[in-house]
Design a protein around this nucleic acid. Structure first.
Length: 454
RNA sequence: GACCCCUUCGUCUAGCGGUUAGGACACAUCCCUUUCACGGAUGCGACACGAGUUCGAUUCUCGUAGGGGUCGCCA
């Protein structure tokens, strides 16, 4: 960022802290793209940081492929990420309507201004073109610094189609003027076109906003990320895959900006506090699913038992498991929280808490049958459980240890057997935790059922 | 093709003329441990290349290469 820009920016923030106005202006194409989500996120961070206004404007001038469903997809993604907008659909505001499809009169008015200034001409078929100034134009960018474009040799830019509808560059600039945007955070893919926007601002006699072009998110192989790629769509890749919004928020921020902090796991409030647009990176970043999942694991583990259960519940029920007792289910889910990094992984770790006919995995059957005396060890454990007078994690533990002692083996020899019998698998929370949570009766039934394998 | 942006471990990055080039994810080994994990410790691993400027370049300048982007009556 240039010194002039830095100064202008800090002055603006110091004296007019709540005058900043930024917007996210997506074309409603369905599921929110991560790149778009992150663009929205930086706009939101800046608005919250400066006490300004975050506006959502739907650029739906291409009526053919902009459906109501598509619009809802965008809004769902934004809401899920926690990016609330102060003006826009459902929020209202003084600069509406916030759908470009409803702003034709405004565009007509602005086109008239260009006509009056002799900056447009109509072609034979009715299309209207804007006469470029064909002077050198410098973009003062918060991220990229000053970028100067030589006088263009491109043909004049079409701003209105023969059918009367308007082109992106035109409506985008008109709306940014009308909606009084002070800053524009957008993808770097727009940098090369920004001189056209500035040319338009100048033609309207308006002051361009301060631009900040943020780097793009690439696939792990460095190619451009598009719809079908892993991690590309908020609902499909994150909501449905068991990510937590805060984790995705945190990861996405880190992909374009490194906060000055001694840790990476930072909450929204901390990120807002630390955010400095001048520190946004200038190079593209590759998407790393493993790192994103690591963030998710961190946030998962920080959840309270109740919050974790609430988040996991839909994923458990989607597998068809019936939750009869919420308190037990909550404890069951909490007992495996540090074994997973995605909510979608939880059902496979807790399914046996919700049914008695859980399958015995192959290695369990193998383990149990490996030694003939395993059956008697299980019977010894059952006997110890039967005589237990109380049923807590501690008492279950004690019963197991006593059964092992009585049978002349170490608890470690009995544990895997019991684990396999009670859960059908060789991994999971402590055996005493499983026994305690499923209850005494079920514990005995489960051992009996496992005995049937011999 | 023209123009624009970018270039530190595999990935995300710190660094802002002198550092044993630091951290995180991933990976490997060890410790902990009834399993799976968590956690802890250690290790592996980078300044794209070539010229300058300088006593000294990862850091500044130029070039080359590579990656990305833009050049629509898409947004």
């Amino acid at each position: 960022m240039s010194a002039t820009c830095t100064r202008a920016y800090s002055l603006l923030c110091r004296f007019f802290p709540s005058m900043t106005r930024v917007r996210f202006a997506p074309s409603p194409t369905g599921d929110l793209h991560v790149g778009g989500g992150r663009t929205a996120l930086f706009n939101w961070l800046f608005a919250r940081k400066t006490g300004g206004t975050f506006i959502l404007r739907i650029e739906d001038t291409d009526g053919a492929r902009n459906t109501e469903d598509a619009k809802r997809g965008i809004e769902k993604g934004l809401r899920w990420l926690g990016l609330d907008w102060d003006e826009g659909p459902d929020a209202g505001g003084d600069c509406g309507p916030y759908f470009q499809s409803q702003r034709k009169d405004i565009y007509d008015t602005y086109l008239a201004k260009l006509e009056a200034a002799d900056r447009v001409y109509t072609e034979d078929n009715g299309a209207v073109r804007f006469k470029f100034s064909r002077t050198a134009i410098t973009v003062h960018d918060l991220v990229c610094g000053d970028v100067t474009f030589a006088p263009t040799e491109e043909p004049d830019m079409t701003v209105r189609r023969p059918d009367g509808s308007y082109i992106f560059h035109f409506v985008n600039v008109v709306d940014d003027i009308e909606m009084k945007m002070t800053h524009v955070f957008r993808g770097e893919d727009h940098l090369s076109n920004t001189w056209k926007h500035i040319d338009l601002f100048n033609a309207f006699g308006a002051t361009p906003p301060i631009y900040a072009h943020i780097p793009l998110i690439l696939n792990s192989d460095g190619s451009k990320m598009s719809k079908r790629d892993a991690g590309s769509a908020i609902e499909h890749s994150y909501i449905n895959e068991g990510f937590l919004p805060d984790a995705v928020f945190n990861y996405l921020v880190m992909l374009g900006w490194t906060p000055r902090a001694d840790k990476e796991v930072l909450g929204r409030d901390e990120l807002v506090k630390l955010f400095d647009p001048a520190e946004i990176h200038s190079s593209n970043a590759r998407f790393d699913l493993q790192k994103c999942q690591w963030f998710n694991a961190q946030y998962l583990r920080a959840l309270s038992p109740e919050a974790l259960f609430a988040a996991a519940r839909p994923f458990i029920e989607a597998k068809g498991y019936v939750i009869a007792d919420e308190a037990t289910a909550t404890a069951a889910v909490y007992s495996v929280k540090e074994k997973v990094s995605l909510l979608t992984e939880i059902p496979a770790w807790v399914h046996y808490f919700f049914r008695e006919d859980y399958p015995f995995e192959a290695d369990v059957t193998e383990k149990l049958k490996a030694k003939p005396e395993n059956a008697s060890l299980l019977r010894a454990a059952a006997a110890a459980f039967t005589t237990a007078t109380e049923w807590t994690e501690a008492s279950v533990q004690t019963a197991i240890e006593e059964a092992a002692k009585g049978a002349g083996v170490k608890p470690g020899a009995l544990m895997p057997l019991l684990r396999g019998a009670l859960s059908g698998q060789l991994r999971g929370p402590g055996v005493n935790t499983i026994g305690h949570l499923v209850g005494k009766d079920s514990t005995l039934r489960r051992i009996e059922r496992a005995l049937g394998l011999f």
